[in-house]
Structure formats: structure tokens, C-alpha cells
């Protein structure tokens, strides 16, 4: 039961962390009205993953190994891009907020309307299908034993619970600190997702170098231990890391962190050119960026 619990926890942690930061941010800038979009993205991802997982488990057709790896790799790279976008979008709205440019925030949020749904959707959906297949496998086993299903469900619930704890902590710290910390955390999380995607593509044989290892610390950090689970679940830390993964991780982190630090010193001015002043209009249904 403990082993299945840890799988559930690991699969849920990363999504819980990203969604938590997103929700905490929106609440902190006092825009609870856009929370609906975040939950829409989360809900869509959960339902879609469970339905696809059930169809593949109980239906006429399953998923081939190559297709599974491709979905994993592509969604990981998409997730990295979206989380990166989210970090710099948060910076931009923070600048608007500090300048009391209320209308500008509204425009940013309006433009991010679809963006927020997509970030929440991909954050949850990335490991969603794999998690759903795991859950349905546990359901299939209930004829013999319900322990795997109970363990997996408790694991996912724990991930959500931890997300809630982090959320309450985040509400207490001030906005400036919140940006520095969440921005940094999100960049490291995104770097982990990217290197995970690289690993998927290396396993699929799309990228070379699966067996040239930069380090192997699985003796010190066993992947089935509780701390190995936490490291894997939050930062996507793999105790066995290839050179290509390490290079991609380091490159991404170095570039994005320095851009992030520079941008936050400039008061969040990510774009050098000021955006053209738009005439003040009523919010339109069609999001425009």
C-alpha cells in the first residue's frame, strides 16, 4: 500500500504545486473572479485524463509504447513553455499592479484568459493520462485487493493537501517575497519538467545518450524512498541523470533565472518596448493579446 501511496503522491505533487501558485497569485492580486478559469482547466484535465484512461484500459483499444512516450515528451515540453510564460506573465502583471495601472492589469488578465485555462490544463494533464492508467489498473485489481486503490487515492489526496498547506503559507508572505520565491520555484520546476521530457524522448530513441550518465546517486536517494518521491514529485529530480538532461536543465535554469532576476530588478519590465496604448473599451468576449 505504501508503494502505491508514494506513486500517487509523486504524480500529484507537481500539478498541485503549480496550481497552488497560480491560485495564490490570483487571490493575492485580488482577482478571485478569474479563479473559475483555473478550475476549469484543472477540471477539464482531470475528467479528460480519467475518460481517456478508462477508454484505453477497458475499451477496445490500448495505447502503444511509442505513442505513450511521444505524448509524455510533447506534453512535458509544452508544460515547460507554459510555466515559463506564466512566470513572466506574473512579473508583468506585478509591474502593472505596483504602478496602479488597474486597466492594464485587466487587459493582461483578459489576454491571459485562455492562457490560464491552458496552463492549469497542461499542468494537471501532463502526467494525467499516466496517472489515470495507474488508477484504473488499481481499480482493475480491486477484485483481488483494494489496497493499491486505497493507497493511490490517499497519495493523490496527500498531494492536494500539501498544496493546500503551501497555499495557506503563501497567503501570509508579502507580494514582493511571493514573486521572488514562486518565480524561482516555478523556473526550477519547469527545468525539471523539461529534463523529464528529454529523458522520455531519450527512452523513445528520438534523442541520443540514454546511457551516458552524468551521475547515478540512486544508492543514496532510492527512487522508491519517501524523500526520493518528494524530490521526483516536485523538482522532477532523477537519481539517474544523463548528460543531455543535465545540460538542458542547467542551460534552461541559467538562462531563465538570469532573465527573471534582471526583469524583476527592472520592476518587471520584460518587454523593452511599451505596448501601444489601447483605447479604453468595454471588456470584450474575445480575448486579445
Amino acid at each position: 500500500m505504501l508503494a502505491n501511496y508514494l506513486i500517487g503522491l509523486r504524480e500529484g505533487l507537481e500539478a498541485a504545486l503549480i496550481v497552488t501558485i497560480l491560485v495564490a497569485y490570483v487571490v493575492k492580486i485580488d482577482r478571485r473572479d478569474v479563479l473559475r478559469r483555473i478550475w476549469l482547466g484543472v477540471g477539464l484535465a482531470v475528467v479528460l485524463a480519467l475518460v481517456i484512461g478508462a477508454a484505453l484500459t477497458f475499451g477496445t483499444y490500448g495505447l502503444s509504447f511509442a505513442a505513450r512516450e511521444t505524448i509524455g515528451g510533447v506534453l512535458s515540453i509544452a508544460a515547460t513553455g507554459l510555466v515559463t510564460w506564466m512566470v513572466f506573465w506574473m512579473l508583468r502583471t506585478a509591474r502593472d499592479l505596483s504602478g496602479h495601472l488597474r486597466g492594464s492589469i485587466d487587459r493582461s488578465l483578459l489576454g491571459a484568459g485562455v492562457g490560464l485555462v491552458v496552463v492549469a490544463f497542461v499542468a494537471v494533464g501532463r502526467e494525467g493520462i499516466e496517472t489515470a492508467l495507474f488508477i484504473w489498473a488499481a481499480v482493475q485489481a480491486t477484485g483481488e485487493t483494494t489496497m493499491p486503490l486505497i493507497g493511490a487515492a490517499l497519495g493523490i489526496l496527500s498531494a492536494v493537501g500539501l498544496g493546500w498547506l503551501v497555499y495557506s503559507g503563501m497567503l501570509r508572505i508579502n507580494l514582493a517575497k511571493f514573486f521572488t520565491w514562486t518565480g524561482g520555484i516555478l523556473i526550477v520546476v519547469a527545468a525539471g519538467v523539461l529534463s523529464y521530457g528529454v529523458h522520455d524522448l531519450q527512452e523513445a530513441g528520438v534523442l541520443p545518450g540514454l546511457n551516458s550518465l552524468a551521475f547515478n546517486v540512486s544508492a543514496a536517494i532510492p527512487p522508491d524512498s519517501w524523500f526520493g518521491t518528494l524530490l521526483k514529485g516536485t523538482l522532477n529530480f532523477s537519481p539517474v541523470t544523463t548528460w543531455l538532461e543535465l545540460v538542458v536543465w542547467t542551460g534552461y535554469t541559467a538562462i531563465c533565472l538570469s532573465l527573471f532576476i534582471r526583469a524583476s530588478r527592472n520592476g518587471g519590465r520584460v518587454r523593452s518596448a511599451p505596448r501601444p496604448v489601447e483605447p479604453a473599451t468595454e471588456p470584450v468576449a474575445e480575448p486579445v493579446r
Binding site: A3, S64, M147
Partner: peptide, 15 residues
């Protein structure tokens, strides 16, 4: 490769 096969579970690998 079939991953995440917890104790007591059966998972499929199709190749």
C-alpha cells in the same frame, strides 16, 4: 517499458 507498476497491480506494455 512499463512503469509505475505498484505492488498488486497489472499494467500493459504493447509494442
Amino acid at each position: 517499458e512499463a512503469e509505475n507498476i505498484g505492488p498488486g497491480l497489472s499494467r500493459n506494455l504493447v509494442v
